Amino acid sequence: MQNLNADNYRVKQSVALSTVDTYDDLGASEKQLKKQLKKIRKDLGEFQDTMYAHAKYGVLVCLQGMDTAGKDSLIREVFKDFNVRGVVVHSFKVPSTLERKHDYLWRHYIALPERGKFSVFNRTHYENVLVTKVHPEYILGENLPRVESVADINEDFWAKRYQQINEFEEHVAQNGIIIFKFFLHLSKEEQRNRLLRRIELKQKNWKFSPGDLEERQLWGKYQACYEEALAKTSKDHAPWFVIPADNKEAARVIVASIMLEALKKYKDIEEPELDDEIKANLEIFKQELEKESK
């Protein structure tokens, strides 16, 4: 298996997605990839246990991608060995009535991880500069001041949204949230194949929606919006990584490896030491417990 370099996937400047590979096998078979993922996710789970005891950092994992990009299965496989108390998944759908009564970042802010835990955003606050940019009429549902029609949603409006998102992420990063942002980069042909499987396989029928085909017709617009969002919001404290998603097994290994490599650099995350008085009396406590069995 090839050595994996996170910098090969990190967004550092403007990116033309049409020139970026959507397939990678890391020079390994499916069996080898699954074996590698098993090892990495075990290490991630152990790291989270330590992070939970340390209780000073949280981890936010943001997943974006076109329909069928593999977000759900990636979450299932990468976080399989986590203690269930240590990871919370949030799948953001169309905003509720309550959520619309707040600013667009509110529902994401309250879903941030507690110290010691991972939060996974399956679709994220970036929907507010992606789907709403493709469908600007959705913005009208936010009932914003000075936005009375689509004509009021101009480039200055979007520039402010990017600024707000960058400031939001900078703020939470400064307060102990480690941020990972992954764009699962799927080819249009592979999406076609996956949509066909949803139709052909009865057990996957429930995943299919005619709306998927309507959004597919807007592929080019979505790719342009992703390119702009990636370029404007990939920062040192909140980097974007473009992950080839046509091969699900490799995508999972890449995501898990990037996270583990970055988290290992936090040398200050370690299990806390016992109080000196407790530590000095451990032998006494042990003897008390041993007497109970006699």
Results as ranks from 00 to 15, higher is better:
residue 203 Q to A: 13
residue 203 Q to R: 06
residue 203 Q to H: 14
residue 203 Q to I: 05
residue 204 K to F: 14
residue 204 K to E: 14
residue 205 N to R: 15
residue 205 N to A: 10
residue 206 W to N: 08
residue 207 K to A: 04
residue 207 K to W: 12
residue 208 F to Q: 10
residue 208 F to L: 05
residue 209 S to E: 15
residue 209 S to D: 14
residue 212 D to S: 08
residue 212 D to N: 11
residue 212 D to R: 01
residue 212 D to A: 05
residue 212 D to L: 06
residue 212 D to V: 07
residue 212 D to E: 14
residue 213 L to S: 10
residue 213 L to D: 04
residue 214 E to W: 06
residue 214 E to C: 00
residue 216 R to D: 11
residue 216 R to H: 12
residue 216 R to Y: 11
residue 216 R to V: 05
residue 217 Q to M: 14
residue 217 Q to N: 14
residue 217 Q to F: 05
residue 218 L to K: 14
residue 220 G to S: 15
residue 220 G to L: 12
residue 220 G to N: 15
residue 220 G to M: 07
residue 221 K to H: 09
residue 223 Q to Y: 00
residue 225 C to K: 12
residue 225 C to Q: 14
residue 226 Y to E: 02
residue 226 Y to K: 03
residue 227 E to T: 01
residue 227 E to W: 05
residue 228 E to M: 12
residue 228 E to F: 04
residue 229 A to N: 07
residue 231 A to I: 07
residue 231 A to C: 12
residue 232 K to E: 11
residue 232 K to L: 14
residue 233 T to Y: 04
residue 233 T to K: 03
residue 234 S to I: 06
residue 235 K to G: 00
residue 236 D to F: 03
residue 236 D to Y: 01
residue 236 D to V: 11
residue 238 A to R: 10
residue 239 P to Y: 10
residue 240 W to N: 03
residue 240 W to E: 04
residue 241 F to Q: 03
residue 242 V to K: 05
residue 242 V to M: 08
residue 242 V to I: 15
residue 242 V to D: 02
residue 243 I to F: 02
residue 243 I to E: 05
residue 244 P to V: 02
residue 245 A to K: 09
residue 247 N to F: 06
residue 247 N to W: 09
residue 248 K to M: 07
residue 248 K to I: 02
residue 249 E to Y: 13
residue 250 A to G: 07
residue 250 A to D: 06
residue 252 R to S: 08
residue 253 V to W: 09
residue 253 V to I: 05
residue 253 V to P: 15
residue 257 S to M: 00
residue 258 I to Q: 07
residue 258 I to E: 01
residue 259 M to A: 01
residue 259 M to Q: 06
residue 260 L to E: 09
residue 260 L to T: 00
residue 262 A to V: 09
residue 264 K to A: 10
residue 264 K to E: 13
residue 265 K to E: 15
residue 266 Y to G: 03
residue 267 K to P: 04
residue 267 K to F: 02
residue 269 I to Y: 12
residue 269 I to K: 13
residue 269 I to R: 13
residue 271 E to T: 14
residue 273 E to V: 08
residue 273 E to R: 13
